[in-house]
Design a binder for these strands. Structure first.
Lengths: 223, 223
DNA sequence: CACCTGAAAATTGGATACAAAATATGAAAA
DNA sequence: TTTTCATATTTTGTATCCAATTTTCAGGTG
């Protein structure tokens, strides 16, 4: 039927969305140097589209704080700021704490079991020194936990995901040190414990602590 | 020197900003019915500008959740949702609680005195049945409190302001009932009390309570 | 040498024309 | 009558042109 091979979420039809996602990815992964100039014209030429979609993408990124307008010099990549990183982590701690409190009482026993399993796998990988797999299972842990949130509290979910994205910019090599890995796994254990107890206040507390610890184990790129 | 009469913040130079603010104001004040269609062309004609600035304004409003894209039928005014209102208020409570905790220890004695004064004025106005003035002094109270936050925690400040805006849509006649007014003033007293004690945890608690009470005193427009 | 001043260059802001996509319409067939 | 399909219409998406604005920089002036 369909002549197109597939209609994946990859490669969105609109040039605006493509441009936005590409620029965002580059900005979050640190492909652009701080204070680097970005002009509509240059990006448009590079991507083979007109200025219009590039413009709209840049405006969207401006709203997210990923670029800043610089008058007739185009847009500028904002400098890293430890103060901002701390602020973002603090907001994350508060919001994710609230999220886990909301989740307590909503998770099923099956989900608790799955979470336990991901932790076990991550711990095995950690002991084997396989950081890649630790990261993989931590991601699954997170995804499962927050898939429920996405349904129950869509606005909160979006805010949290945005915060996580913004913070990514500041973590160049998080979790590479063993101590941070172990502490993270322990944090996950506490999270599942609080969830299975169904105690909102405890949930909020352990999640805040977990995010705060993630901050401590994060090296700002600048220093 | 300047030939222009004044360069007030009113009537921003760019058509995009003008359009954005006007549409936003109308959306937040309920001038548009839920599910009403908004097309770039119609708005552009109405405001006497081209589609370009209108479209950028609509995209910005989409990001804020004030309109939603509706394929080739333009944009649509989203229906009110009590669930979403509750979610937004809950997020506000958590974030503003965190904000006040951050502020504890940063406010000066002069600022505490000013806050006290605004409360007194609001209380007088309340007893006189002058709701308009109550609203005025409550606004000043808020502005003073958060001007400090804007400097110390710019990202948190922006998030909170955004949340407040989203929520405005759902309050058609908040604070018109005397009980809500009195409870709000009492809440402000507790806030200043917690601030002057410099106790972050107490600050967080009283602010959460204050926002929760605001939720209780808010009538969703739909019901 | 520092400091204005003004013109030129670079860049975004806005308008318009056209292309692409989605939706609505209506006729034909089951 | 209902469904389906082709087509017309509506509306957004993109490209391009011109205008407004900001920056840059050279040249003059104290």
């Amino acid at each position: 039927m369909k002549t197109n091979a597939s209609k994946r979420t990859r490669s969105p039809r609109s040039a605006r969305e493509r441009t936005y996602r590409l620029l965002r990815k580059k900005l979050l992964s640190g492909s652009y140097a701080p204070n680097q100039r970005l002009t509509e014209e240059a990006i448009a030429r590079e991507l083979g589209v007109s200025r219009t979609p590039v413009r709209e993408a840049l405006h969207k990124l401006d709203l997210e704080g990923l670029v800043e307008p610089a008058g007739a010099r185009g847009f500028r990549v904002p400098e890293d700021s430890v103060a901002e990183m701390d602020e973002l982590f603090a907001i994350r701690a508060v919001m994710e704490g609230h999220a886990l409190a909301c989740l307590s009482g909503l998770v099923t026993d099956e989900q608790i079991a799955s979470l336990h399993q991901f932790i076990d796998e991550a711990e095995k990988a950690s002991l084997a020194g396989n950081i890649k797999d630790v990261f993989e299972y931590n991601t699954r842990f997170h995804d499962l936990l927050y898939s429920l949130l996405a349904h129950e509290r869509p606005r909160l979910y979006n805010l949290i995901e945005d915060m996580r994205d913004y913070v990514v910019r500041y973590r160049k090599n998080t979790l590479v040190n063993l101590k941070g890995v172990q502490r993270s796994i322990l944090g996950h254990k506490k999270i599942v414990m609080a969830l299975s107890l169904g105690d909102p206040q405890l949930c909020e507390h352990v999640m805040r602590k977990h995010v705060s610890e993630a901050r401590e184990d994060t090296n700002p790129s600048g220093l």
